[in-house]
Design a protein around this nucleic acid. Structure first.
Lengths: 342, 342
DNA sequence: AATCATATTGGAAACGTTTACAATTGCGAG
DNA sequence: CTCGCAATTGTAAACGTTTCCAATATGATT
C-alpha cells in the first residue's frame, strides 16, 4: 500500500519540488515516516538506538529540514511570535525588539516584526495578518486602542510592553511605574533648583504619557515650581513634534528646564536650542524619558529616566511563556533609574 | 459522506479549537469549501455573484481568517520574507528594516527579522531556521560569509543590501558605489584643506568597508594628504570600537580630521573627543558614512555620506519581486549624497 | 422541446507533518 | 515450546488549504 503510493507520487531521487521531505528521509533510512518524526523530535514514544542513528544519518545526508508549514498545520503551533512596534526607528524600541529576537531565537522561535506607527488602522491591519498566521503569541511595544485588539486578546496570548491600554485591563503588561518615575525625576530637578520649567508631554491618549504627565505635575506642584500657563504642551512622540513644541517655549528667557515625555521629544528640543543658540545644558537643562541606548554616545546633555530595556524584554518573554503555559496575566513593574548627565 | 464526516468531527457551532476554518464558512454559506476558497481568492475559476456574496457574508459573520499554515502547505508559498540584519541597534539599519516591513506589508507579506551580529555562526543558525520556514525570500542587511549561505542562495531568492559578499558574486545586490563615495568624500575634505587626517575603517573582511577604505586611501594619496603611519586603524562597526580606536589618534594635536568607516564609529570618536575636551568641529572634523537618520537631530557636527536608505529598501523589494518572478540577479548601485554639516 | 455550449459548483486529492492505534518484534518465564 | 509482556515500528487519519476534474445547472440555439 504505502509502497504503491510512493511509486506513483515520488521520483526515485528526490521530491520534484526540490525540497526534501520526511518521506525522503524515511525512504533513505529504510524506516517509516512515523519513526523519522519520532526520531527527530524524540518526543512521544521512543525509538531504538539503531533507528535513531539511521534517521540522523539520512537526515544529515539529505540536508533535511522539517517543513514548518506541515508541522504547524498538524500540531497547531508555529514557533512564531509577533511584535507590533509603534516605531522601530526609535532606538529604544529597536533595542527591545533586538533583545526579544535574541531571546526567542534561543528557544527556536522566530519573530515577525510589524510597525503600527501609533495608528489604529495600521495596527488592525497588522493584527489581521497576525491572526491568519497562527502565531504563538503577540508582543505589543506601545499599543494603541483599535477595534481588532479585542478579538486578538481574546484568542491569543498578548503581552504589552512599555505601554498598557486602559481598555485592556486583563492583559499582561511589563513596564515601569511611569508616574513614580516622572515624580522622582521632577523632584530631582527641583533639588537642583530648576524653578522655571516647561513640560512637553506625549499624547494623553497614551496611558504611559498620561501617567508621566501626572507624575510631573504632581511633583512640580509639591516643589512649588513655576510653570507658565502655556508652558505645558502636548506632542506626538517624535523628534519633529518636540522641535515644533519647543519653538514658542524658548521665547521665555528665564526658563531653567524643559521636561519631555520621552527622549525623542527631547532630541527635537535640543535641535531647536542649537538653532536658537541656546547653550545646553548651561542655559537650559533638558530632561527626557526612556534612555535611548545612544544617549550615552550622542546626548551627554540629556537627563533622563532609564527604562531597563533588556530586563523589559526578558520579563516580557518570561511572561509570554507563562501565558502559553496557561498561566495568569500579570502586570509587572520593573525598577527604573534616574540618569543625570548634565 | 461529507456530511457524516462533518457530523462526527465538527461541533455544531464552531470548531472545538476555537479557530474558524473554511469548513465553518462553507457550512454557514451553504456551499462547498471549494467555492469558499474560490470566492475568497477570486483566483482560478470564477464564482457566481450570489455565491460570492453568501461567502463574503458568512466569512464576515464568523470573522474568518484563512489559516496560513494550511495555505502555505498546499500552495507552497508563505507570504513571508526574512531579513537577517547584522545589528538592528544601528538606526540606519533599523530604518531600512522599517521600510522593508512597510513595503512588504503593503503586499500582504510579513517579515521575519533576525539578527546576526556579524557573526557567521549566528547567521547560520538564522539560516537554518529560515530554511525550515519556507520563506519566499531572504534579505541580508550586511551579510557575513558563512557555510550555510551557499545552500540558502542555491534554494531561495536572496538579496544583499548594503554589503555584498565576494564569495557570492551571483547574488543580487543593492547598495551604493562605496569606493567612489569614499573617494568623493575624501576629496571634499581635501578641498577644505584638511591636510592631517586619520582613518578608522571597518573590518577589511567586509567588502563594503574594504571598498570605502580603498576609496579613502586613493583620494588621500591624490590630494597629497598627510596620514601618519599609525593613523589608519581598523575597527569593528560599533561605537565602542570607534571610541577605542580614537584614543591614540587624538594624541596628535595637529590632526585636522578623522574619516570613519561608518557613523557608529564616528559616534565613538565624538565621545572620545568630548572626554578629551577637543572641540568638534572647531578643532577636529569628523567624517562618517551612511547618514543615520538621527544625525539630523543629534549629530550636527557630523559630515557623512548619505546612503539613500528608503530607496535601498524599495529597490531591494523590487529586485526580490524580480527574483521570485524568475528574473535575473542584478547588482544595483544607487546614487549617494555628500552631507557636510560642519 | 430538445440539444448543446458554457458557467458554476462539489468531490476529492494533495501539500508535510504528528500521533493514536494496531501490528510486529524480541525475549524471558512458565 | 509456548505464552505473554514490553519495546519498537508501521499504518492511517487529521490539520486547513487549493485546485483538478467531473458533475450539475443555466441559458441560448436549433
Amino acid at each position: 500500500m504505502g509502497a504503491s503510493r510512493d511509486d506513483k507520487s515520488r521520483n526515485p531521487r528526490q521530491s520534484e519540488s526540490g525540497a526534501v521531505s520526511i518521506r525522503d528521509v524515511a525512504k533513505r533510512a529504510g524506516v517509516s515516516i512515523a519513526s523519522v518524526s519520532r526520531a527527530l523530535n524524540s518526543g512521544s514514544g521512543s525509538v531504538s538506538k539503531a533507528t535513531q542513528e539511521k534517521v540522523a544519518a539520512a537526515a544529515q545526508a539529505l540536508n533535511y529540514r522539517p517543513n514548518q508549514a506541515g508541522r504547524a498545520l498538524r500540531s497547531q503551533s508555529t514557533n512564531t511570535f509577533a511584535l507590533i512596534n509603534s516605531n522601530i526607528q526609535n532606538n529604544f524600541y529597536a533595542a527591545i525588539a533586538w533583545e526579544l529576537e535574541r531571546l526567542l531565537s534561543a528557544e527556536k522561535s522566530a519573530l515577525l516584526v510589524y510597525t503600527s506607527n501609533e495608528d489604529a488602522e495600521t495596527q488592525d491591519r497588522c493584527i489581521e495578518d497576525i491572526r491568519s498566521r497562527q502565531v504563538s503569541g503577540v508582543f505589543f511595544l506601545c499599543a494603541v486602542d483599535s477595534p481588532g485588539l479585542t478579538t486578538l486578546t481574546k484568542n491569543d496570548p498578548v503581552v504589552f510592553i512599555n505601554r498598557r491600554l486602559q481598555s485592556c485591563p486583563e492583559i499582561s503588561f511589563v513596564g515601569i511605574d511611569d508616574e513614580a518615575a516622572a515624580r522622582a525625576q521632577m523632584r530631582s530637578g527641583a533639588r537642583r533648583d530648576l524653578r522655571n520649567i516647561a513640560i512637553i508631554h506625549g499624547p494623553e491618549s497614551s496611558d504611559t504619557s498620561a501617567r508621566r504627565l501626572r507624575g510631573m505635575l504632581d511633583a512640580a506642584r509639591d516643589a512649588g515650581a513655576n510653570i507658565a500657563p502655556n508652558a505645558i504642551k502636548e506632542a506626538r512622540l517624535s523628534m519633529e513634534s518636540g522641535y515644533d513644541c519647543a519653538g514658542p517655549l524658548l521665547d521665555d528667557k528665564n526658563l531653567d528646564a524643559i521636561f519631555c515625555g520621552n527622549d525623542q521629544i527631547a532630541y527635537g528640543v535640543y535641535r531647536r536650542c542649537l538653532e536658537r543658540g541656546i547653550a545646553v545644558p548651561d542655559q537650559l537643562r533638558i530632561y527626557g524619558f526612556d534612555d535611548n541606548p545612544m544617549n550615552e554616545w550622542l546626548a551627554p546633555w540629556l537627563n533622563t529616566v532609564r527604562v531597563p530595556h533588556v530586563e523589559l524584554a526578558r520579563t516580557a518573554v518570561e511572561q509570554m511563556q507563562t501565558l502559553t503555559g496557561n498561566g495568569a496575566a500579570r502586570e509587572i513593574l520593573l525598577p527604573y533609574e534616574l540618569i543625570q548627565r548634565a
